[in-house]
Design a protein around this nucleic acid. Structure first.
Lengths: 132, 132
DNA sequence: GACGTATTGTATAGTGCCATACAAGCGGGA
DNA sequence: TCCCGCTTGTATGGCACTATACAATACGTC
């Protein structure tokens, strides 16, 4: 948990140059990668509630990085899409992310990284209350 | 980070039966273990700011689980100590913690747990900006 | 001793999230 | 067709923390 806090904090520091926090950056990057999806789906991807996702979209929309399109098949839904500006910022986000991840894994081999992911997932399994 | 969030959430769920959240439980357990220390030192142990630590102590003091004693050597400082009630609750905290940790490491060998800790610490090293 | 610097605890404002409740809209069954 | 349960996005209130500023106090140096 300590390590996770430090990583989140450092992400926020590095994204500060874009005037974004980690959640906003993740939202933008996801939308840029996966295209128009509903806010609920984005909330699931980000691991936050729908209300939080809506707020994040609000902020990014006000900055002109995202836009909401009505879903032709479901009038409840907003489909969220990147603007041209948003695409440009999303690329910078990816650059910062690539650099940070490289910094994080300095001195850690590929095998060790796989082992780390594997162990964390197994710990997560122990937290899921019997999902068969 | 995902795993850490799940762990924190599950801790909060399990401590809810004592009407405590994770930070309050950690505070109480630390004070019970290490005895009277200043709030700043407790803040460091918990990994939160001094203001947050002060608030946690406030809550636990109002519930009669902790008490503040003036430090005879430094009039700025409150030494924080457990009451008898606090000691009893701290024992329950430890029991819950032992059980949860056992649940978490189901199916994970001692060697793997050491490897996990080792890898996380090495990642943390990469986050410390040149502390020699 | 006097002074500047550092540390302690507190107060305040701001942030990011959750939980809950709600209206609008969807879909299936009678 | 109508109704019931479900999902979607939003509004609201609350929580836990941070960052910052502050007064009181300690400490090292002259």
């Amino acid at each position: 948990m300590n390590t996770a806090n430090l990583i989140r904090h450092e992400y926020n520091v590095r994204f500060a140059e874009l005037d974004l926090n980690l959640s906003q950056a993740m939202m933008l990057a996801y939308v840029a990668e996966f295209g128009a999806e509903s806010q609920s789906r984005m909330a699931d991807r980000l691991g936050v509630g729908r209300a939080a996702a809506g707020n994040i979209v609000d902020v990014l929309e006000k900055r002109g990085l995202l836009e909401r399109l009505p879903d032709p098949d479901d009038r409840r839904v907003w489909l969220v899409q990147t603007t041209a500006d948003g695409k440009a910022v999303a690329e910078k986000i990816n650059e910062i992310d690539v650099i940070f991840r490289a910094d994080l894994r300095k001195g850690i081999s590929r095998r060790e990284r796989q082992e780390l992911t594997n162990l964390l997932l197994r710990v997560q399994q122990n937290l899921r209350p019997e999902t068969p």
